[in-house]
Write a protein that binds this DNA or RNA. Structure first.
Lengths: 213, 213
DNA sequence: AAATTTATGAGACGCGAGTATCATAAAGAT
DNA sequence: ATCTTTATGATACTCGCGTCTCATAAATTT
């Protein structure tokens, strides 16, 4: 029998057995390393987790796969977000309150993910890569469509879509990069700027549609 | 005499001589390659420019240095931007009209630059890198402070600063990444969303300060 | 307990980036 | 034209990532 197949457990498949154990060990180690600021190579994770390089590569064939898995864990609470408030601004503020601290906490992880998606984009441009799905999945889209849902009836669909698109600019790692790294703001300050901007955008959309701000 | 020193010509120093000639040749080649979607390694540029690897490394000791130089060229018209309009919204719109198409044109270059800055950030977090200045320089800051200058007197300084910070979120490669790659918008549509968002932010700042929209 | 399947570790290999050395070619000075 | 300085090219080397093979250890089955 072939040994070279990786287990196709996605995130929470196959909870028991040695494979799951080793996989979890590696994932935890990788998460820990990333939290400490490193974007570890497979070799580094292998050493830190005290498994051989060969074994490590059996579970995560590339740094990309590893980061992907870590990001999936880091996203957790963000993907579970939902709100039933009837006010769009409340929803948006609430979404940011959920997402931004989490993104900030896992800043290195999300930055690594962004880096990988840029890698993949470049490779695709060069024709090296086929049409594999890009790393960056559109979680933002769904979350923001949900956050702006209360504007149905108030704001026409096209304007609502544009609002969601604009909001996605103030919601993600990019915000941290620009505000913390370029402007030198603190995490809290960055968050409050993002919230202000988000509210301003919602308000503008509402006003434009003739609603009362 | 040592040969190993690179010329410390920044961008436009030492216009003549063989060094300048080779440097320009490499820079042009690198720009061309990047425009075609590749983020070339020094070796690739060397081959395409038909100089030896050794020579290439004498001019650009790393891919980072190369991209840095290409970005400096690509920034050109953006850095030269200025406006004397008395209206902040006109200025902001005008700035975006200057910057966004240029960024879009050199998308691959700016994405490569962003990738490098993420690399440097990670290395700094890991303690590998000293306190060298980060790749991302704060051009945005100056440009947006200039664009929002007409609001002096109308909007208090702190609110103006916050507005500039918020505007910097809708002004850069990140906008293209989010709107084109995640949302799947066209360049034109992305631009118009950015302009709408920017105007909404300015308007919000003005209204908040009690001005008339 | 014996046999079989599955997971692991050790080491060799290829590849590309970046460095260092040395000899040659081109440019400039006298 | 000769000599000095400077730029270039060829080559060899290190280093880290990723792949592959094979032998051994652990788990599972009967």
């Amino acid at each position: 029998m072939e040994v070279s197949r990786q287990p196709n457990e996605t995130a929470r498949t196959a909870e028991r057995g040695p494979r799951a154990r080793t996989r979890k060990l590696m994932l935890d180690t990788a998460t820990r390393l990333m939290q400490s600021g490193i974007t570890p190579s497979i070799s580094e994770v292998a050493e830190a987790a005290e498994v051989s390089r060969a074994t490590a590569y059996r579970y995560f064939p590339s740094q990309a796969a590893l980061v992907h898995a870590v990001v999936d864990e880091a996203l957790g609470p963000i993907l579970d977000w939902s709100s039933d408030s009837p006010d769009a601004r409340t929803r948006v503020t609430d979404l940011l309150a959920t997402a931004m601290p989490r993104i900030d906490e896992f800043e290195a992880t999300f930055k690594a993910a962004l880096k990988l998606s840029l890698d993949q984009w470049a490779q695709r441009q060069a024709g090296t890569l086929g049409n594999e799905p890009l790393f960056t999945r559109g979680h933002r889209i769904d979350l923001l469509r949900c956050a702006t849902a209360p504007l149905q009836g108030t704001v026409p669909p096209e304007a609502r879509e544009r609002l969601a698109q604009a909001l996605s600019l103030v919601f993600g790692v990019e915000v941290l990069i620009v505000l913390k790294d370029i402007w030198g703001l603190s995490s809290d300050r960055a968050h409050s700027v993002a919230v202000w901007a988000a509210n301003a955008l919602v308000q503008a959309a509402v006003r434009e549609a003739g609603g009362q701000g």
